[in-house]
C-alpha cells in the first residue's frame, strides 16, 4: 500500500509538471499546426525570470506571497514579450512556407533564446529555493513529500479547468475550436485568424513559461536545462495526440505514472519505458490516443 501510494504521488507530481508544459505546446500545434520547438525557450526564460525575482524577494525577506506573484508575473511577461515578437515578426511571415521550414525556424529560435539567457543571466546556476523551503514537507504513507511539489498538482488541476472552461464555455474558446477545425472556413466566417494565431501563441508561451517558473524553486536553474523538458513534452503530446488538450492530460498521466513505477521497480528502464510507450502508440495509433478529428474536405 505504501509503495502504491508513493508511486501514485510521485507520478501525479511529475505528470502535473509535464501537463503544464505540454499544454502550451499542444494548444499551439492544435491552432497553428506548428510544432513549436522554441517552447523550451519560453520554459527556460520563465524559470530564469522567476528565479531572479524570487531570489531578490527572498534575500530581502519580502512576504512569501510575493514569490507566487513573481512566478505568475514572470510567465505572463515572458509569454507576452517573446510570444508577441516571435509570432508577429517571424512566424507570421512564414505561414505560407513549408511546415518543415517553420519547425526549423522554431528550432533556431530555441537556440537563440537559450543563448540570450547566457548573455542576460550568465552561466552560474540559480537556486530560488525559498518557496519550496518555506512550505517544507508533509508525511504521506510514511514518506515525506514536498508540499510545494504537491501544489504543482493543484496548479495543473486549475490550469486544466480554466482551459476546459475557456474552450467550452466562452465565445473565444468556440472561435478557437473553429480555427482548430478548419482555418479557411473560419476566415470565410469572419473570424480574425491572424489575431487568434497571435493570442494562441502568446498563451502557449505563457504556459511554457509558467511550467519553468513554477518548477524553478525545486531545481538548479542553469543554462541548457530546458532541452530535456522539450523532448519529454514531445513524448507527451505524441502519446496523447498532437493538438489535443485531453490528450496532453492523459499523455502526462501515462508518462508520469509509468516513469514513477519504473524508477521504483526497475530504475534502469526509466527512460526506455517512456519512449517504448511512445513507439507503441505511434505504431498502433500514429495520430496519438486523443488526436482531434480531422475534417473531410471535398
Amino acid at each position: 500500500m505504501q509503495f502504491l501510494t508513493t508511486v501514485l504521488f510521485d507520478g501525479l507530481i511529475y505528470a502535473s509538471y509535464l501537463f503544464i508544459v505540454s499544454l502550451g505546446l499542444t494548444i499551439t500545434f492544435g491552432v497553428m499546426k506548428i510544432l513549436n520547438v522554441a517552447h523550451g525557450g519560453f520554459f527556460a526564460w520563465g524559470a530564469y525570470l522567476a528565479s531572479i525575482s524570487i531570489i531578490y524577494l527572498g534575500d530581502n525577506e519580502y512576504n512569501s506571497y510575493f514569490y507566487y506573484f513573481a512566478i505568475f508575473f514572470s510567465a505572463i511577461i515572458v509569454g507576452l514579450f517573446f510570444g508577441y515578437i516571435i509570432e508577429r515578426f517571424i512566424l507570421r511571415k512564414m505561414y505560407n512556407e513549408d511546415i518543415h521550414l517553420i519547425v526549423l525556424a522554431t528550432f533556431g529560435l530555441f537556440w537563440i533564446l537559450e543563448d540570450l539567457i547566457l548573455h542576460v543571466f550568465g552561466v552560474d546556476p540559480l537556486m530560488p529555493y525559498y518557496p519550496a523551503m518555506e512550505l517544507g514537507g508533509i508525511e504521506i504513507a510514511g514518506i515525506f513529500q514536498g508540499v510545494y511539489s504537491l501544489t504543482l498538482a493543484a496548479l495543473a488541476i486549475i490550469v486544466a479547468f480554466i482551459c476546459w472552461y475557456f474552450l467550452k464555455k466562452t465565445k473565444w474558446g468556440k472561435l478557437l475550436q473553429s480555427v482548430i477545425f478548419d482555418r479557411e472556413v473560419s476566415v470565410s466566417m469572419g473570424i480574425n485568424v491572424t489575431n487568434v494565431y497571435l493570442i494562441t501563441f502568446i498563451i502557449g508561451g505563457m504556459l511554457g513559461a509558467l511550467g519553468g517558473a513554477y518548477i524553478a524553486p525545486t531545481i538548479s536553474v542553469s543554462p541548457g536545462f530546458a532541452i530535456d523538458v522539450v523532448v519529454m513534452s514531445f513524448a507527451v503530446v505524441v502519446i496523447g495526440g498532437m493538438g489535443s488538450v485531453p490528450g496532453a492530460l492523459i499523455g502526462s498521466l501515462i508518462v508520469g505514472l509509468v516513469r514513477a513505477f519504473a524508477v521504483h521497480q526497475a530504475p534502469i528502464l526509466e527512460l526506455f519505458i517512456i519512449y517504448a510507450i511512445m513507439a507503441i502508440v505511434l505504431i498502433l495509433k500514429p495520430e496519438g490516443l486523443f488526436a482531434p478529428p480531422k475534417p473531410r474536405k471535398i
Partner: peptide, 8 residues
C-alpha cells in the same frame, strides 16, 4: 534535474 521519484 527532477529527482522526486528517485528520492521516494
Amino acid at each position: 534535474g527532477q529527482y522526486g521519484s528517485e528520492i521516494s
